[in-house]
Design a binder for these strands. Structure first.
Lengths: 260, 260
DNA sequence: CGGTGCTTTGAAGCCTATCAACAAAAGTGG
DNA sequence: CCACTTTTGTTGATAGGCTTCAAAGCACCG
């Protein structure tokens, strides 16, 4: 089903050596730390079923593979997606290093979603039941995760509102800001960011055409709102853009939520 | 802030008489029953701060009034909304009798949202902390509520995907099906449904113009997909429409979630 | 070198917004 | 109850946004 994928097992040392110093899931740990978690993640080590290194673009279908697992991205980039009745694909959300790709499954096992892993990604696959066991004695950790995921939910709501109501340039700008924020949460601090998304993928996320994505990006470059190098992009005055679009970051200490 | 609203207190008898037979929040109770709840709701009576009858269209602003409360709609219709940077209003979700208008606040107190109550509505205002106390001894009830709200979340995701990616006729159809479903969950079993929404409100929800809503509705009538009487509407062949749009109902025993 | 996938560009046409005006309905005050 | 104001619904003309179809340019890779 997934073509002849170059998929080799990622070596499992860090998980199997046990209670050692090198952190299991370092990116995940850093994210949770910035969400207020102080403890280490060794307690959830038993929940890790396996790890995978991804060579090529690779889908995880909700129906078939590992439908009962939770995916934590440790390296690379991923997104969740759905097919609409017409056969069109819609991209629901994007995930950078340290993100949980389908946290909803933790609380509601009937929740399913397709995940696409970009090349050069690494994921840890967790068992929800065992994770629940591990978190039972670790309420602070659980709450940190929930705070982290609430921020994601709020960010999705913000983006979705924009995608429904605003014109294409704004829609794309919001996507780029979200991508920027996702990298930021992953510890990326440079102003130039890797743009691993295809224009077709951006189209599927923003609800527009590949062609129109291309043209809109060009216009943003002309307007000085965007700079491009091969495989990279940069928002020269992101702050102004955020102010202009009323963009809010939910990751850090921003406590109040949506209104005008 | 809310104009000169005709707002009189709804008499509180049913709540104050105590552990008597007449159910507090009957519509809410029916909804939870169909979500698998068997117990009565008397245990959450202490969480009810007050009740209100609404005479005219009336907003509840996230910032000012009752920012810490949870709203349960017992009669009428309500919706939650947000203002976009341009000053445009976006309607996030709709609520029929028995619905919780801002359940997210239960888990995350920092969550805020504006709520608009249509004329002739009745709400119960609950205190989150007291509700949490009441539900601590009533895990089955809590889980029923969570199942009920998961269904809502999934329905929102489904609608949002359609609103982002599909053309206007489909967007409106999805809204009408959602409205139908919301009435259905509230115990409404007729095929003719009250359409209390303004065309401007439909526009704010579907991300289109008042004018275009009007024209699209007219076309749907011409195509035989929709029937209208003053203040009422009917989808003559809703089943076919649902199949055509891949519309899924999450309310009942449908257990599996999103994919193609 | 020829594939393959992604990007870019052009032209045509549909979809949707905007502006403006009016009809219909509903609320308001006498 | 009627006259009045205000809101909501309806319709036309026009312009711009966005999609579609088609083709060509580029980059990467075997």
């Amino acid at each position: 089903m997934a073509g002849r994928a170059v998929q080799k097992e990622f070596d499992d040392r860090s998980a199997s050596i046990g209670s050692a110093d090198p952190p299991i899931l370092p990116h995940f740990e850093r994210r949770l730390a910035s969400a207020g978690n102080k403890a280490s993640l060794t307690s959830i080590a038993p929940a890790i079923v396996s790890r995978r290194s991804i060579g090529t673009l690779q889908p995880v279908w909700a129906d078939v593979e590992n439908r009962q697992s939770i995916y934590v991205l440790e390296e690379g980039l991923a997104y969740s997606f759905t097919f609409l009745p017409g056969g069109k694909r819609h991209i629901d959300d994007i995930y950078g290093p340290g993100a949980i790709c389908n946290w909803a499954r933790f609380g509601s096992p009937e929740y399913k979603c397709n995940i696409m892993l970009k090349p050069n990604s690494r994921v840890a696959i967790l068992d929800p039941a065992r994770l629940q066991d591990a978190l039972k004695d670790n309420l602070n950790l659980l709450m940190a995760i929930q705070r982290h995921e609430l921020a994601r939910t709020l960010r999705i709501s913000q983006r979705v509102r924009a995608l429904i109501s605003l014109p294409a340039p704004h829609r794309l700008a919001i996507f780029l800001l979200d991508l920027r924020e996702e990298y930021h949460l992953s510890g990326h601090r440079e102003s130039w960011l890797p743009l691993v998304f295809t224009q077709e993928e951006m189209a599927d996320l923003a609800g527009m055409t590949e062609v129109h994505v291309n043209r809109t990006l060009s216009k943003m470059v002309d307007a000085g709102e965007l700079e491009r190098r091969p495989g990279m992009y940069c928002l020269p005055n992101a702050d102004r853009l955020e102010r202009q679009l009323g963009y809010r970051r939910f990751g850090k200490g921003h406590s109040d939520a949506s209104h005008a």
